[in-house]
């Protein structure tokens, strides 16, 4: 809570147990998510307010509902 207050801004996380590396998130939000050649998913943990909308789009579209976005500006 305090951390969130101090650092602020929307945060992204992906539940590894759920994610099956479909890469849908990369299509929705390139630059925030990237499916590597090795099949691993890399993503930004902290995103700007402007990118929060694209992060939410990725979360809505994720086939496994594995993406959690916190602190989307209302």
């Amino acid at each position: 809570m305090t951390l969130h207050r101090i650092r602020g801004g929307p945060r992204l996380s992906v539940d590894n147990d759920r994610c099956e590396r479909f890469g849908t998130c990369e299509w929705e939000a390139p630059g925030l998510f990237e499916l590597g050649r090795d099949g691993r998913l890399r993503y930004r943990r902290r995103v700007s307010d402007e990118d929060a909308e694209r992060a939410a789009a990725a979360a809505r579209c994720c086939p496994m509902q594995a993406i959690v976005v916190r602190g989307v500006p209302g």
């Binding site: 590396r21 479909f22 890469g23 990369e26 299509w27 499916l35 050649r37 099949g39």
Partner: peptide, 9 residues
């Protein structure tokens, strides 16, 4: 082939 499918999308 998720990576290839990003390309084809």
């Amino acid at each position: 082939r998720p990576k290839a499918m990003l390309y084809w999308t």
